[in-house]
Design a protein around this nucleic acid. Sequence first.
DNA 1: CCTACCGATCGGTAGG
DNA 2: CCTACCGATCGGTAGG
Lengths: 223, 223
Amino acid sequence: MSKEVRTGRRSEPRQPSPHVARKRTLKRHLILESAVRAFAARGFYGTSMDDIAEELHLTRGSLYYYFRDKEEILALCHLAALEAVLDAAERVRGACLPPDETLRRLVVEHVRIQVDKFHGTALALEFDALEPKARATVVAARDRYEETLREILAEGIAAGLFRPVDPKLATFAIFGAINWIGRWYRASGPSSPEEIGTQFAEIFLDGLRAQPGAAPSGGSGQR
Amino acid sequence: MSKEVRTGRRSEPRQPSPHVARKRTLKRHLILESAVRAFAARGFYGTSMDDIAEELHLTRGSLYYYFRDKEEILALCHLAALEAVLDAAERVRGACLPPDETLRRLVVEHVRIQVDKFHGTALALEFDALEPKARATVVAARDRYEETLREILAEGIAAGLFRPVDPKLATFAIFGAINWIGRWYRASGPSSPEEIGTQFAEIFLDGLRAQPGAAPSGGSGQR
DNA sequence: CCTACCGATCGGTAGG
DNA sequence: CCTACCGATCGGTAGG
């Protein structure tokens, strides 16, 4: 918060009152939410600043009071999404569960965050549109998350719990399936985010093929 | 205009010579290939007609001799990709193999087509940009392909070869993983399209989890 | 007369 | 936070 200098008797222009700063932060949140919706629907280049401003009953120009430019809004959308899944990954890993259960929970959490908070398109936005510096920041956060997933897979392989797949390709497959959700998911559809996450985790963990020992249809009573 | 006056008994203006028509068809192919590359790299809205024309040493205006507008180009890119994977699906299904092997081959073929012929982004383009009629055509072809995949899954489930997953969600998972390839694949990377397709098929068919009966690391001599 | 374009510019709209 | 604009660039089309 207030770093060092008390505002003292004179209001410094750099230091708005807490009340004003809070209002500004809230508005920034609203704008980013509107932007995520628009970007998810029509992509970065297909979304105008008017699109983002419109549903907040603002005009295009006002957005530049809150954000430097369109790219900054895109970068912050990405970073918010990545922060959310990185938090989820830390929480899930903190539980110190076996790699398969860790993976299952992370997939479910990631799907839930992606769908509920980012309209299915959290990490699927085009950060190629960002200038090098902002892109580097976003890519670094994305790489941290991908690395977390690869670690979980590597641990599972080392423990003999997972087959010796290529952790990179497996990570891309999982990411792809989750990031693609935004292209087909509709809130009015038959599947809830929880059902999607649970099914996806099941497919990635156990595959489509029935276990050789399992009965085709009648329960084997294993569980 | 003098519509009624025939120019003589030969050379109808509507019917160009076969040689000229062929040249035109070839040129159209070249333009579509350029467009796919550009759309894959920067998306539909991020690509200008100049971008598409540039690498063919044409000017923007010349494209309008070959195509009505930018949307038609996007629609034809989609349809070419869908035609390719639909052909592959027909070929693979024609072999009358068990559902698991059919699925494996189709995933490998789809990945190969997607990467080699469409720069990883064959079915991942934004057809929301199309006007209703063109979009309906593209969506119909895409639905036909998705339906094919769902049928393979349903047959496998009916045969007891696949676990009773939701065929729709499983199809979306497979599509997502494949359509996401364009976001990370680089020809200079370590994995060939064939390796990617093979690994993806393996992950979807058998999952990440090691079989209960299989040895963690030492070969069981099964194969 | 037709083909395959070009140079220039149209009306609109983007980010800022 | 809006109105009034800018430099540039967009998709698309004119005449030759």
